[in-house]
């Protein structure tokens, strides 16, 4: 069964990630009174991009984007998606925290070799934004790990199945709220679209990408969405007993994380960090203090 999940998890992540990309475009269009592209438009784009010629700025330019996507797939292997996680005994949530940053880091290394000013600005923004949301995010994750006394995602899911979901239990509700507040920043959607700001810095890190590069970067973006949302479902909403329920829960969280997208204009990176370090951090901090003092 576990061997099967090694293949199933990445495929599910790929499909759901692309579906979310399509859904978000559709969602946006409807809010703006447009029809919007079909849901499978991202898939068409990716297939087309694979046949298009592009430019390369060197070996690292190629390797970085591959590394970025590969590491995102590895993170997926750590997630129980309504079943058992394929890589459950390899460092747990702590390893996931690290592997999650290899995605942006791979893009950063790849973009770095391109010697393009927009790319450099985009990367600098991405890293600053990451520091912004990592403060509340780490507090949330630490509150959960301390509360359940484990670093394994699987055990956190199992513990929630025995009692209530984390988001519905007393001290952890703060962590849940804080997570929802930082979710748009983690997914990189507006108002936190500072990294790939198309009109400002020509899509930032992706400025030099075309053809297969852009395809991989797009898939990576879809996977980032998938990971951010599935972490929420696993850690705070009790996971699921089968992939279908898991997917439905993800859909709800996605809708919640996305509605702000249409309603707000883009922030500047300092404004984003200032926001992230104010309310979400405060709420996450309260949650962490309560967990540390009251405990289970």
């Amino acid at each position: 069964m576990r061997i099967l999940w090694f293949v199933l998890s990445p495929l599910m992540a790929l499909a759901v990630g692309l579906f979310f990309l399509g859904l978000s475009r559709r969602f946006m269009a409807r809010i703006q009174w447009r029809v919007g592209p079909p849901l499978y438009q991202p898939l068409i784009d990716i297939l087309r991009q694979f046949t298009q010629k592009s430019v390369s700025h060197g070996p690292l330019f190629d390797l970085g984007v591959v590394l970025s996507l590969a590491s995102s797939f590895i993170v997926v292997l750590f997630m129980p998606l309504g079943g058992t996680a394929p890589l459950s005994s390899s460092g747990g949530l702590l390893a996931v925290l690290y592997l999650m940053l290899l995605g942006p880091l791979g893009i950063a290394l790849s973009g770095g070799e391109a010697a393009n000013p927009n790319v450099s600005i985009g990367i600098s923004r991405k890293l600053i934004l990451a520091v912004g949301y990592e403060v509340p995010f780490l507090m949330i994750v630490l509150a959960l790990m301390t509360y359940y006394g484990t670093i394994s995602i699987g055990e956190i899911v199992a513990a929630q199945r025995e009692s209530a979901s984390a988001i519905a239990s007393f001290p952890l509700v703060f962590s849940g709220i804080a997570y929802l507040l930082i979710l748009p920043a983690m997914l990189g959607v507006r108002p936190f679209e500072v990294v790939g700001a198309a009109q400002e810095i020509s899509s930032g890190p992706a400025a030099e990408y075309g053809g297969p590069y852009l395809a991989l970067a797009t898939i990576q973006h879809g996977l980032t969405m998938f990971i951010g949302i599935s972490l929420f479902v696993n850690l705070l909403w009790g996971g699921a007993s089968n992939p279908v329920v898991f997917f439905l829960k993800m859909l709800v969280v996605f809708a919640f994380g996305f509605w702000v997208n249409a309603a707000f204009p883009r922030l500047r990176v300092e404004q984003a960090v200032r926001y992230l370090w104010r309310w979400p951090t405060l709420i996450a901090f309260v949650g962490l203090i309560l967990v540390a003092t009251i405990g289970r």
Binding site: S56, F73, G211
Partner: peptide, 23 residues
């Protein structure tokens, strides 16, 4: 796996650093 998928796509042309897109 990702490398193979990447390689299966169209080949890219190597360009110098001055040849970059600046809107």
């Amino acid at each position: 796996v990702v490398w193979c998928v990447f390689r299966s796509g169209a080949r890219s042309v190597s360009v110098g650093q001055a040849d970059s897109y600046a809107a």
